[in-house]
Amino acid sequence: MARAIVLRLLTMQARTRRELSDALRRRNVPEEVAESVLDRMAEVGLVNDAQFADAWVESRQQRRQLSRTGLRRELQRKGVERELIEDAVGRVSGEDEQEAARALAEKKLRSVRGLDPQVQRRRIAGALARRGFSGEVIGSVLRELPFGAEDDDSAEAFS
């Protein structure tokens, strides 16, 4: 039964060992049985938190434009060990992070186009901050966006 549960969950999407362990616990699978099944799945390569973390970082950083901080938070919630998180997130360069922030800001800019430039800046800065980008990255991205020349100084507040 435990093996079938794990395989069904892994068929839908990759998962961490803790996510699978939690799912088995919710289905009242005895802990010894769950550990045995998860150990076997790890042996055959179906459960690998290091590979999961690497794939998660690549996917989320590109598709959802998350910062290194945001990626760390998500992986921690999924139960990935701190060392594996740092290895995976460490592969994201400052340039990659800047590019993700820029892509998110440009996307957000399209949705706030008709608003006052000050409001546009605030909303974009808020969106970037919620994704975990630093003030330095936010300020840099805001300075690159075409808001209009009349209030370029407001980007300085985020650097």
Results as ranks from 00 to 15, higher is better:
Val37Lys: 01
Asn48Glu: 12
Ile5Trp: 01
Ala50Trp: 03
Leu142Glu: 04
Lys107Ala: 12
Val80Lys: 01
Lys78Ile: 05
Arg17Gln: 10
Leu10Glu: 03
Arg68Ala: 09
Arg73Asp: 14
Asn28Leu: 08
Glu106Tyr: 00
Glu86Asn: 15
Ser59Val: 06
Arg91Lys: 15
Ser111Ala: 14
Val47Glu: 04
Gly126Cys: 03
Arg17Ile: 00
Ile124Ser: 02
Leu75Asp: 03
Glu99Tyr: 10
Ala53Val: 06
Trp56Leu: 11
Ser154Gly: 04
Gly94Tyr: 04
Ile138Ala: 04
Leu66Trp: 12
Arg8Ser: 15
Glu97Gly: 01
Gln76His: 09
Ala125Met: 06
Glu19Arg: 05
Leu109Lys: 11
Ser154His: 13
Asp152Gln: 13
Glu74Gln: 14
Thr11Pro: 00
Phe147Asp: 01
Asp22Ala: 11
Leu20Arg: 00
Arg63Leu: 11
Gly90Arg: 10
Ser154Phe: 09
Leu66Ile: 10
Leu84Thr: 00
Arg26Trp: 05
Ala127Ile: 05
Glu81Ser: 03
Arg27Gly: 03
Glu81Ala: 13
Leu84Gln: 07
Gly114Arg: 14
Arg40His: 12
Val37Asp: 07
Arg40Ile: 01
Ala157Ile: 06
Pro30Leu: 03
Lys108Pro: 00
Val141Lys: 02
Asn28Tyr: 11
Leu66Met: 12
Lys107Gly: 07
Leu7Gly: 01
Leu66Gln: 06
Arg18Ile: 12
Arg27Ala: 15
Gln51Trp: 11
Glu83Thr: 13
Arg110His: 15
Gly94Val: 03
Phe133Asn: 04
Gly148Val: 01
Leu128Trp: 10
Glu95Val: 12
Pro30Gln: 08
Arg8His: 12
Leu71Gln: 12
Thr16Ser: 13
Leu20Ala: 07
Val137Met: 01
Ala157His: 10
Glu83Ala: 14
Ser111Gly: 14
Gly79Lys: 07
Leu46Trp: 04
Leu104Thr: 06
Glu58Ile: 10
Ser134Pro: 03
Ser36Pro: 00
Ala127Glu: 11
Asp49Arg: 00
Glu156Val: 11
Ser154Met: 05
Leu24Tyr: 03
Arg27Asp: 14
Arg72Thr: 15
Ala105Phe: 00
Glu150Gln: 11
Gly94Ser: 10
Phe133Thr: 05
Gln51Glu: 14
Glu43Leu: 10
Arg113Tyr: 10
Val89Ile: 13
Met41Ile: 03
Glu81Asp: 08
Ala125Phe: 04
Arg122Cys: 00
Ser154Ile: 13
Val33Arg: 14
